[in-house]
Design a protein around this nucleic acid. Structure first.
Lengths: 334, 334
DNA sequence: CGCTAATCTGACAACGTTGTCTCTTCCCCT
DNA sequence: AGGGGAAGAGACAACGTTGTCAGATTAGCG
């Protein structure tokens, strides 16, 4: 910048004013400065800039569990869109469901003085963020609530959605429903399971631990779990998959067997419409989830110091998948 | 930091040494400093740190077209993994295929003094990066080559893959092959089209512009294009989809019609196995693409100044999808 | 016991910006 | 014509850290 100033024959400060589009600079001088900037290929150092001005790195962080999962990828895209509207860069980091990694990444983002953080929590204790929050870094949690910290949170109606979905299964006469979940340690899984029980209990369906399978982390183990349940003397007539990854394994196994079991699944995704098995999906607006959280974050960054809010977004039941073996039916328009 | 120094009764510099694990600090002093750090909740400012030390923001950028596309999401995940191995943060930005946005984002990343950049180019002129590259910011291009700039590039064998795939269609007797592509302006599309012609020409199949459809940007328009081609007097017996998004529309339309046209598609993806229509997919290792590029980038960041390299990764033909109406067959294991 | 060397610590400047304040100039109004 | 005020430009310090160098302390050795 000093070089540019020398070249244009002005002071450092004037160059600063020009590159920041500050007022009170004569057009003639500005032109000389811009010419010098172009000639010398000068690019202002944003590090120094935000160091000096104290805040505003024009960066927010998004901590998710896994980038390649379409659920999180969609959230990232929606958040990036909102960030772009605020001339802010979005940094996406992936915790891989590891609380230690989550902690390290969040600390790192704080050390880099990000303007705010969007967090899908992996761990259940976020008290280590309290100092940062009090120091002025806004944090908004989404999809899952924080632990040991009062902060803005945007959630889905996991429990209500599961209740409605399982309720429909019960209306259709199902009494033996196999439930597959990733990990009972995860908030969303607990809520969805609770929602299922909300519907099962009043219908007089007894609790049967053999119909609930925890620790189903990937499609292959979901397929195995389905196979085992089906091979027992009194097999389930319906399956409730608690996330999109599990759904894939369930569909695969049922398709392979030519089964006619009914499928209820949490999480909608683009390709669900084209999967070769009919199912009812508990859907919600993933983009809206991320958008709401991001907008809330920018409210906070803008100085909103009101009491932390919790927003819960609704879910709905939709039909997905196609029927194999049946005459090809018209799909819904894209 | 000054507060910490005062609290611990040492100098600023000693605190700096302690938080950087520098040698030559008495254990007793270090302990006092660490205690003060903990009490005051001190977190070192990485902005100031990398400003002072000149380089090493421990950040690299990845510019892709669209986060929610599984192709790019997978690349992002693989790149993030390599970045993590180098204690570096990965910043993902999305250009939405807009050259102006690409330019702005890359400039921004340079202004933030990222240690290096991974770029899937949207535009065809990257000469604006030359100054940065010469100034020492390593840039590696992937999936598509840069324009007007000599730099490391990691590509797929688009042309060879398309040639092999179309060759197989020709062996099976197909002569009327509908080809659908996103935009002829995109490098990968041109290469894949050239590969198709490599196979068509020697087989004596004449060029027929009605069988090539450009500008198919989303599944819905792919479905429409397929419908129109099939309703002509001499319909294609096979379709070649040049990317994953187009493939979805093709499959949807063919399934809806109960057609028996053969499908060849570029790009594999997780759920392709479960789509309700059989097809041959030109597959490649997306993660390897990103890994190779990221490793090359870290080589450059590490100081490798050898001549720019171009790496081309192979493709292979695989079977995907299931056959509707047929007896459910065993799927491949996950 | 004195000298050298090794180890440890601190003062200071500098990284590249921008906020603050001051000074100059020029215009407009009374 | 004189005074007030606005506008333009620059000098300087400061943001939070670390590299450099010099000083202080201690240990080791003859």
């Amino acid at each position: 910048m000093a070089d540019v100033a020398a070249r244009a024959g002005v002071s450092l400060k004037t160059v600063s004013r020009v590159v920041n589009n500050a007022p009170h600079v004569q057009p003639e001088l500005a032109e000389r400065v811009l010419a010098a900037v172009a000639e010398l290929g000068f690019r202002r150092n944003l590090l120094a800039s935000s160091l000096r001005s104290g805040q505003a790195t024009a960066t927010i962080g998004l901590l998710i569990e896994e980038i390649a999962n379409p659920f999180y990828a969609t959230m990232a895209e929606a958040a990036a869109e909102i960030a772009g509207q605020h001339d802010t860069m979005l940094v996406i980091a992936s915790s891989e469901e590891d609380p230690a990694r989550e902690r390290q990444l969040l600390r790192d983002m704080c050390a880099r003085r990000f303007d705010g953080l969007l967090v899908v929590p992996a761990g259940d204790d976020h008290s280590f963020l309290r100092a940062e929050v009090e120091l002025g870094t806004p944090v908004v949690f989404l999809d899952r609530p924080p632990g040991g910290l009062l902060a803005d949170t945007v959630l889905l109606d996991n429990r209500g959605g599961a209740r409605a979905g399982v309720g429909r299964l019960i209306e259709a006469g199902h009494r033996r429903i196999g439930i597959l979940l990733d990990s009972i340690g995860v908030y969303t899984m607990r809520e969805r399971l609770d929602g299922a029980q909300d519907a099962l209990a009043p219908a007089g369906v007894p609790y049967d631990s053999r119909l609930i399978r925890d620790g189903v982390g990937d499609p292959a183990s979901a397929a195995r779990a389905v196979a085992e349940m089906l091979e027992r003397p009194d097999p389930p007539t319906a399956f409730f998959s608690l996330n999109n990854r599990i759904t894939l394994g369930v569909i695969e196994e049922l398709y392979r067997r030519g089964s006619d079991a009914t499928v209820l699944a949490f999480d909608d995704f683009d390709l669900a419409r084209l999967l070769p098995y009919p199912m009812t999906v508990i859907a919600y607006d993933t983009r809206e989830l991320a958008r709401t959280a991001a907008e809330l974050l920018f409210l906070r960054i803008g100085g909103d110091r009101s009491w932390p809010r919790t927003v819960v977004l609704p879910t709905e039941l939709v039909s997905r998948g196609v029927t194999p073996g049946a005459a090809p039916a018209a799909l819904e328009p894209t």
